[in-house]
Design a protein around this nucleic acid. Structure first.
Lengths: 289, 289
DNA sequence: CGTTTTGATCAAGAATGGTGATATATGCGT
DNA sequence: ACGCATATATCACCATTCTTGATCAAAACG
């Protein structure tokens, strides 16, 4: 007496029939013939010695046993698919270099951790640089992927996420709304942040001066928290030391910027595809209003 | 490209190999030949294009992929087995009569609910009576099962559970320890409770009188809660209106009684077997100290 | 009504899975 | 070191199972 074991293939067929509502459609979806699906359904019923379906005219109706088995089947298949893709993921090997602007680093550690869990055999290297520079390196195939602020003049890549730009000032400082406005600028979007800010101010009839510049937010932090200038940041770059300014500050609204993922021009390696998908999934959700 | 589906049969042998630590032992357990199990393992590896095991000498070692798949396999098989037995349970049909002493009814409603969930197609009838009477009816095949207090003179049945007997008195009453002790007796154990109580009192050199009798605890409740007599109950029969008396009351300790399940003498019907097993499982745990 | 679509059934061929026999390797005792 | 006992891998063969294309019946549709 051997242990009773369900055939997941048959359960998948059952689910397909339920989803599509017809044997023929299920066959099409599963790339079987109609007769195969018909017989699979019978086989399943025979194995369980149960009646799973009835017909009223042409339409199929599942018995209560059928419905019940469908529940089991869906759970079982979900687990199967998860197991399968997990096992396959462990086979993905190779090396992979991703470029990001230094100031986006805070966005990604959880993604890296998850990626390493899924693909432990992939050697992932991350390098930092300005968006413009990274895009060049991707084109030169020095990088597999780069997650950058989308440049006006290099519109390639897929938009992963839109983020609002904000004016921000040191947490305990009053906004410095003097004229000209003292700006601190840095590089994550290379010139994008600067262009955007200057356009907005110009349109609002404000004058400004670039009081400080730096390669990264880290370099500007002391100046900004000291209240000597205001910066432009994305929402995800806000730290406890920064306070965003809303419309009541009188500063012009800023447009959204786009995070774009650039892929090397040749056919992407499997690891690169996977990481790309993961980044898209993980970063897609928030802030696209 | 068809949806990738694991073969649960192969996963089961994988688990068997892991459990037993050897291909041959796994084959024995699963009633396959050794060669079959060996090939099944290879087939599994081939389907996943993965190496799941290595050998060090004779001993088998699973690779990290193998271990990982084992986790998936165990979960998948657990779900499979649950699904299978659930589906099979729905096929169990028939009628079934269970006898219980009225005062055990409180013990069983959750069991009945669970039973009905598992075996919705079984018509379950419950009848009440004294333990002695129920045992007779089982012998006469008028009942399929009876859960009774085990009688000294009818020792059949399987012991499901042992329960301590307790002296109890109305919640707000002082114990009536007058001499002779006024007892209220009723029938769940037919004469068992009475015999046991009287023996204990006699051994302790106490005198007593049977102040009240009734067919069920319900009939005695007013008298006991009024403080006119003390009763003997099992722990599971305690209600908020009853207060158990411990050794400090000076009453002699009472022995345990046994709950026994009697089955009709002919081969039990499938529903009867199932309910019997369920009762055993559900009632087995507590109070056997 | 005739037409079309859908599902069931059947026979046949292909593919898969299990078995026994056999070869090979490992561990163990003398 | 040698041989024996036990475990595993491999192979060819056979039985069973699975899929398919063809065919038929029944239902929907106009």
């Amino acid at each position: 007496m051997r242990a009773p074991t369900l055939d997941l293939t048959l359960l998948r067929t059952l689910v397909a029939i339920a989803d599509t509502g017809s044997v023929t459609a299920a066959a099409k979806r599963l790339a079987y013939t109609q007769s195969t699906v018909s017989m699979q359904l019978q086989r399943l019923e025979a194995q369980l010695s149960l009646t799973l379906h009835e017909r009223e005219g042409r339409r199929i109706r599942f018995t209560s046993e059928g419905e019940r088995l469908l529940n089991h089947a869906r759970r079982l298949l979900a687990l199967n698919d998860e197991a399968w893709s997990d096992m396959q993921a462990r086979q993905v090997t190779g090396d992979l270099t991703l470029g990001i602007p230094e100031d986006y680093a805070s966005l990604l550690p959880s993604v890296f951790a998850y990626f390493h869990q899924l693909y432990p055999a992939v050697g992932l290297k991350v390098i930092c640089g300005t968006s413009a520079h990274l895009v060049e390196q991707v084109k030169a195939k020095a990088l597999d992927l780069a997650l950058v602020t989308r440049q006006r003049n290099s519109p390639g890549g897929d938009v992963i996420r839109r983020e609002p730009l904000l004016w921000a000032v040191g947490m305990h400082q009053q906004p410095l709304l003097s004229d000209p406005l003292p700006l601190a600028l840095y590089s994550p979007g290379a010139d994008v942040f600067r262009e955007v800010a200057e356009q907005a101010l110009q349109a609002a009839g404000r004058s400004w001066r670039v009081a400080y510049t730096s390669q990264s937010m880290a370099g500007l932090a002391p100046i900004v928290t000291a209240g000597l200038a205001i910066v432009v940041v994305t929402r995800s770059m806000l730290t406890p030391a920064l306070r965003p300014l809303d419309e009541s500050s009188g500063l012009p609204a800023l447009p959204m910027i786009e995070l774009a993922l650039h892929r090397a021009p040749h056919r992407p390696s499997e690891p690169a595809r996977r990481l790309g998908e993961l980044i898209r999934e993980q970063l897609a959700a928030p802030d696209q209003g």
